[in-house]
Design a protein around this nucleic acid. Sequence first.
DNA 1: GATGAATGAGCGTTCATTCAT
DNA 2: CATGAATGAACGCTCATTCAT
Lengths: 209, 209, 209, 209
Amino acid sequence: MTPQNLAANTRPGRWTKAERKRQIAAIALDLIATHGVQSLTLRQIASAAGISPPALYNHFSSRTEILIAVLDLIKDRVFEWIDSSRNPNIYERLRELAGSVHESKIVEHPESAILPLFELIAAGRDEQLTEQLAQRQLATVQRLADIVDEGKKQGTIGKDVDSKVVAWSLLGFGYAKDIALLQGVSSFVTDGTADKILDKLLRDVAAKP
Amino acid sequence: MTPQNLAANTRPGRWTKAERKRQIAAIALDLIATHGVQSLTLRQIASAAGISPPALYNHFSSRTEILIAVLDLIKDRVFEWIDSSRNPNIYERLRELAGSVHESKIVEHPESAILPLFELIAAGRDEQLTEQLAQRQLATVQRLADIVDEGKKQGTIGKDVDSKVVAWSLLGFGYAKDIALLQGVSSFVTDGTADKILDKLLRDVAAKP
Amino acid sequence: MTPQNLAANTRPGRWTKAERKRQIAAIALDLIATHGVQSLTLRQIASAAGISPPALYNHFSSRTEILIAVLDLIKDRVFEWIDSSRNPNIYERLRELAGSVHESKIVEHPESAILPLFELIAAGRDEQLTEQLAQRQLATVQRLADIVDEGKKQGTIGKDVDSKVVAWSLLGFGYAKDIALLQGVSSFVTDGTADKILDKLLRDVAAKP
Amino acid sequence: MTPQNLAANTRPGRWTKAERKRQIAAIALDLIATHGVQSLTLRQIASAAGISPPALYNHFSSRTEILIAVLDLIKDRVFEWIDSSRNPNIYERLRELAGSVHESKIVEHPESAILPLFELIAAGRDEQLTEQLAQRQLATVQRLADIVDEGKKQGTIGKDVDSKVVAWSLLGFGYAKDIALLQGVSSFVTDGTADKILDKLLRDVAAKP
DNA sequence: GATGAATGAGCGTTCATTCAT
DNA sequence: CATGAATGAACGCTCATTCAT
């Protein structure tokens, strides 16, 4: 056991309560990404976590609470992604973010975030997650819009651009891409259509010389 | 109505076999729209149809077959919608279609088509509907692209416009709108952002004078 | 339609009621022989008979009645088999009968009688056929015992032989053979054990010189 | 009883896992003996065991697995019965075994083994138990044949006797008896015919002086 | 913390049977 | 005579959750 681990150890076993919760949420996220949200049973999560189903109740009080934790994890990852480029030129930064989506760093990897989010959105009504979803979605849109606004001040983004429109367009593009993939229509990505849409989207927001 | 039709309608109960199937599919579609796909049980469908669950098996051989029938119904409705405007000016026609979406004739009504489709997409992996979905999705994209192509020939749509890009953008916009609504983020529609995106999308495809 | 058919035709369609019942019973017998009695559903019978399940109720008032008809058919076939040799020497006749069993004319052919009877015996308790079974079983034993008695009078069968014992032994042997086959233990037949038992059984009943 | 056993028995409730499985199998065996295999539902077993149907899945993973456990139980009981006489004189031992069958210690008691086995054999085809049955049947025949062989060495069984023939004859006799009873033909037993057959069978294997 | 055993609710499905047509 | 549509009862099975240990 490394000193690091010891440091993190207040006592319990090896991980703090919060860490263990996060681990379990990450496992659930993985399972959602690979098998969908409908087949996400406590048995599966427990088995993947190496414990028994009832043991999950030591960390969460219900299945729904686990899903909320997954939602939090997704939001964190999306924010991490948004902040992954620190390019001072905002327009360039957006290009980099778009590029990383395009390179599938986010969208296509099963361990990723948007696709499971999508699953959760669809399942939301039955799982009573709608409210939780709305909060996080708005926060994400706002975060993107803020960056665009910064770019407008900076002059790299067109002054007449509507920040919200851009933020929503980017998200919408990501969703559409996932929907296509979920439907098994990979041609949307492979034939370059997705790239063209994204490229046009970005060109339109650049500051006109 | 031909004598044949009369015969077919009055003789075997009141509805033909195909009609009854379609009715049940429509009921299932409703239920998906209002409660989501996860809670779509045979008991629910049967109850809404005023029959007992086993009676469904006189019309469909499994739950999956019902879902496929729903998929067909959705495709038909989407095509009806696409063909709902016969404006000879293709650009105007696209504007009308967009307008009808905006007026929520399709998207927001629970009896509508796209939102349930969305549910089915998310459920697809578990329900083994992926293949069926892909077929219908591609058919829809192609239908829209054909119309855009017609507009290019006609001269009302820009010659340099990529038909596929437009088709996918329109669909993607529709999806994004539904996702926002499913997440409970109605502000996307109410604050005019959705309109702005759609308007920009259409202006960009108009033939430049 | 041939004159013969016309002759047999009192009117109905092509067969008399009794004939049609017998045909259906024969179909059920086949199905039992090939798939067992548990999976004998009305759907199966009807489908094999080229009609719909409810149509069976025009001939039989319940599933149990069909099974009874099958029982009758089996009894008839067993009697036919018993009477298939008319060799005046009773001992020889028994040998011939035993031989025909051995040659699998009865036991191993799926269209045969004993194996399905066996299925019905096992199912009897649930199907309330016990009484019907007892009647027919006793009649069969009696028929065999009568023949043995005739042989004793004739002098080809030993005077000290107990006819009932012989009759039951022969039947018991047939049952044991079927049980072995049903269990998948074909070695009982293929390694000659079955033959040896039957041979010993017959030698023991021959009149001693 | 060793300390280990004590520990194993008192700690995990009151019974070990294996014991509980065996108890449930015994209950199922009883139900088969009294009502037949067709009506052996999980609800019945659970009810007789004083638990709810889903609770059975804590011990078995499917209905078929329960039936296999029943098969094992039957095999164990048959072997116990075979070993119930330890008379050093093999011929006498066979007589004792035959006697215990005759006294119905095995066959007629509902808690017994052969009759339910018989039910399982008939149900085997539908329940995919054929392979399991064949294994156990052969093991039983072999066990009996071994004893006969021992008697031949010992000199109490005739040297020219075919051990397999004897083993199969004994089993076949048992089967025939059960079949008769299942059919409701108790006269086979009550009028002494069964005894006579068994007696003859045994006399024929005795070593000739 | 973790587990084995248990449970109520519910699932999709099959069956023999009925009945209007 | 035959059928399509329907049904009550029952089936094997899975699920999230509870609780004593």
